[in-house]
Design a protein around this nucleic acid. Sequence first.
DNA 1: TCTTGTTAGATTGTCGACAATCTGCTTGTC
DNA 2: GACAAGCAGATTGTCGACAATCTAACAAGA
Lengths: 230, 230
Amino acid sequence: MAKADFSPIADTTRRAEIVALLRRAILTGQLAPGQKLNELRISEQMRVSRAPLREAMRELVQEGILTSIPYAGTFVIEVTAKDIDDAYSFNKVMDELAIERAWPLRDQRFFDELDRRHEAVKQATRALDTTRQIETALQLHGLIYEWADNSVLLETWQRLTSRLQMYFALHQHARNEPVPAEDVHETYVRLLKGKDMRAAQCHAREHIDLDFEELLAYARGLEQRPSRGA
Amino acid sequence: MAKADFSPIADTTRRAEIVALLRRAILTGQLAPGQKLNELRISEQMRVSRAPLREAMRELVQEGILTSIPYAGTFVIEVTAKDIDDAYSFNKVMDELAIERAWPLRDQRFFDELDRRHEAVKQATRALDTTRQIETALQLHGLIYEWADNSVLLETWQRLTSRLQMYFALHQHARNEPVPAEDVHETYVRLLKGKDMRAAQCHAREHIDLDFEELLAYARGLEQRPSRGA
DNA sequence: TCTTGTTAGATTGTCGACAATCTGCTTGTC
DNA sequence: GACAAGCAGATTGTCGACAATCTAACAAGA
C-alpha cells in the first residue's frame, strides 16, 4: 500500500484571503506607514462585508504591522529609527541562537533546501523583482529557524519577518534604484554548509550589519516626518 | 505650572473587555487546553453579540493561546512537553540578553520597582493566592525586559508570558498543593541589585531551571492524553 | 458486517442595518 | 477676532439574521 501524506487543505474563508491581501499590500509598501485603513472603502473594493475585514485587521494588529485606536481607526504602523534598531539588534542575537540550534540538525535535506532558496533569491535578483528579492532573501534566512526545532523561536522569527520585510521594502522604495547584481548570500550559504559554526555565526552577524546600516541611515533621515499617507 | 502626565484612558470597547475576560479564563485554567469555545454560548453568557466576540477570539489566536480551524471552531491550545521545553530553552537565552541590555540602565527607579514587585509576590504567597502568585512572579521577572529598552524584545517577552502563565497555572491545578512559603526570588533580586552581571545571568538561568524541571515532568506525564475539555 | 449515500441539527462564516463616537464646520456671543 | 456651543457628516462598534459548512445519526446496498 502506498503511503500518501497529504498536507492540510487551504483555508477557504474570506477572512484568510483578506489577511493575505492586506499583508501583501503593507509589506510591499502599497499602504504607506501611518496610513489609515477605511473599512467601508476597502470592504467595497474587495467586495466583502466589513465583518471578515475587521476580523482580518484584528489579526494584523496582533501581528504587529497595524495599530488600532478605538473609534478613531486602524493604521499601518509608523516606522522609527529605534524600531529598526531594536529589530536589528534583536535579530543578531536570535540568529546566533538559531544557527547554534540548527547546526547539529543539518542534513542533506537542509542543504538541498538551502540551495533551492538561494537559487530563488538569485532568480528574483536577475528578474529585477525587488519585492520578490526581499521575500526570498528572508526565506533563505529563515531556514535556520525552521531547522532549529524550536516552535517559539520559529514563531518569533516569523513575527519579526513581517516587519523586516516592511522595513526593507520601504528602503527600496525610498532609494528607488536597481538591486545589486552581485550575490551577497554566497558566503552565507557556503559557511552554513561548512564545519565552522562560529564562523557562520559571525558572518551572519556582519552580513545583517551591512543591510541594516543602510536601512538605519535611511530611517534616521525620515525621522519626525508627518507621513500621513494619501 | 504643575506638570501632569496622564495615562491614556481605558479602551471602552466591548471587544477589549472580552479579550481580557477570555485571556483571564484561559490563563487561570478555567478553560482547559483543547477545549472548544462555542461562540453562541459565550456570547449569550457575556450578553454581547458574536461580532466583538469573534474579533476578540481572532486577537487571542494571534496571541498564541487559542487556535482556530475554519468551520470547525476555536480551541484553547494544547500543551505538549515539547512546547514547554521550547519555551523554557528560548526563555533562558532571552533572559541572558535582557539582563545584559538592562544592566547598564539600572537606576534608583529600577531598584524601587524591583522591590515593589518582589513585595507583591511575597504578599500573594502569604495570601495563598496561587493565580496571583504566578502573575506577580512573571511581572517581577518581566522588569528586566521592560528595562532593556528594546521594543521587540519586550514584545516577544509579553507574548511568551501568556503561555508561561498558562503552563504554570496548569501545573498548579494538577498538583493541587499549597504554594511554597519560602522566598525563591530573594537571590534573584539581590543579584540584580549587585555588581556581577554574569552571576545574575547564571542565577536567572538556574532559577528558571528549577521551576521548569517540575513543569516538564508534569507535562511529560500527561502526554498523549485526549484532553477534550467539558 | 462493512461501506456508502442521505439527512437533520448544530455551529461557524458572512451580510446589511443600526447605534455610538469622533471630526470639522458653522453659529452665536463677548 | 477669539472662543465655546451646537450641529451635520463620516467612520467605527455592535447587533440580529441568513448562508455555508461540518458532524453525527441513520438507512440502503454490496
